[in-house]
Amino acid sequence: MMPKALIILIDGCAKEYLEQGVTPNILEVGKRGFHKMIKSALPSVTNVNHATILTGSFPIEHQVAGNYFYNPETGEHGYIQGKGFLNKETILDFYASRGASTGLFVVKGKVQEVFGENVTFGLNAEKTDPEMIHHLGMEMPPETVSKPEANNWIMEACYKLLEKENPDLVYCTTNDYTMHNYEPDTDVAKKQMEVLDYWIGKMLELDPEREIYITADHGMQSKTLLVDLQKKLDKTPFDTFCMLPLKDRYLENHRYQEGSAIYIFAKDKSQTEDLLEHLKTYDFVESIYTKEEAVKELLLPPDPIGDIVIFSTREVAFGELEDEELEVNVRTHGSKFEQDVPILAVNARRPKEDYEFNCDIVKFMMQDLSK
């Protein structure tokens, strides 16, 4: 018999969202078990870290390096929102292969498309399953999924799934609309966290013995300057394709596709060394990695990341703009500055000090259950 486990991912939950005095039930998980800060995988974007958490491995193993892809051989590029990009077994697949019941409840439809092929119970707020909604006694989700109400809806659905079916393993994740648009101390953010906390409290009451982990895929920081690096490089002799690993369809969260990491593909490989030196002259660049350095130091897969990986300084992000630069007041993620995320766990498999990255949750589960 497989152990009961629940993993809740609060998308974009920087630690400040848990410091506003409105999340007593979430903090109770930490009191019963432990609460600390750990690291996400880089770049600190959603798809990368769903894959990292669910497989218990870094991108160099599971091969998901962003929300978007570019194939330099064909010129094809697009959103990662289906099967075929993940190269490693998830904990959901692991449980299913052993006859255990699983649930994947998400706000964004793309998460279910990428990771939900073998789950027993699947639900997302974007492309609804009327039979599952009826089975759980739920109302239909809000029309716009990039709103706080969609998070409230999926958390209620997760609670009702646990109450009605008691699956062996459930992975539930929200959408980070609130974190992109509201500072932690705003009324909207506090209300969002208060509602999430309410449902987590009810889930905790259902089965105090269940293994429960609450974490995030990335943090969130305010940015005051956006840079369109492609437009800047188009004015130089360098022939490049700049890919934003954060780029996705949810423009309510980031209207300029703004994120603090970027992959640069040199179309003319003979220019790579000079391009690298040119990028070092920009004051908005915090760190630069060659492909080889990114593979070794960041544990990124070589093929999807181009020839150069760069991260911006704290208050800067890269985006798709009409001009080369734009002064803004936005909140986004993708860099090392949004890599710190909380973990709260009860009935965890290892002591507090063993958890350093969000992938450790499933890594330790896999190690124990494979014996």
Rank of each mutant, 00 (worst) to 15 (best):
E320H: 14
I308S: 01
E117C: 04
E315S: 12
G137W: 06
G201K: 00
M366Y: 11
A125P: 03
M203P: 01
Y263D: 14
V227K: 08
Q257M: 15
I343V: 06
G78A: 11
N166H: 09
E117G: 10
Q81I: 15
I26N: 00
D11N: 08
L27N: 08
D197Y: 04
G78S: 13
L42D: 06
E356W: 12
N152V: 13
S335W: 10
K269T: 04
P72V: 04
G33S: 01
Y198G: 00
S260I: 02
F265R: 00
K160G: 08
E194V: 08
L206M: 01
S44R: 09
E353P: 03
K267N: 14
F105M: 10
T23C: 04
E19F: 00
T120E: 06
W199G: 00
L161C: 15
L162N: 01
A216P: 11
D168G: 14
Q221G: 12
G259V: 00
D354F: 01
L169H: 02
L279G: 03
T240N: 00
E258W: 12
L136K: 02
E149D: 10
V64Q: 10
T313Q: 03
E126Y: 07
V114K: 12
F85M: 12
Y256G: 09
G30Y: 01
E183M: 13
I343K: 01
L298V: 09
L299V: 10
E286L: 11
S260K: 09
L275S: 02
T128M: 13
G103S: 07
F121R: 01
K39E: 12
P301T: 02
S146Y: 15
I53M: 06
D340N: 08
Y171H: 00
T173Y: 02
L27P: 00
R210F: 01
S370L: 09
D340R: 05
A294S: 12
Y355P: 05
K296I: 13
T290V: 10
F241L: 06
Q221C: 14
I7K: 04
A317T: 04
M1S: 15
E143S: 13
Y171A: 00
D168Y: 12
E297C: 07
S57V: 06
A41Y: 09
E19G: 04
F69Q: 14
Y263W: 12
T178G: 13
E277Q: 15
L169D: 00
E315C: 12
Y171M: 00
Q367A: 14
L229Q: 05
V295N: 09
L196S: 02
S287L: 13
I308D: 05
K83E: 15
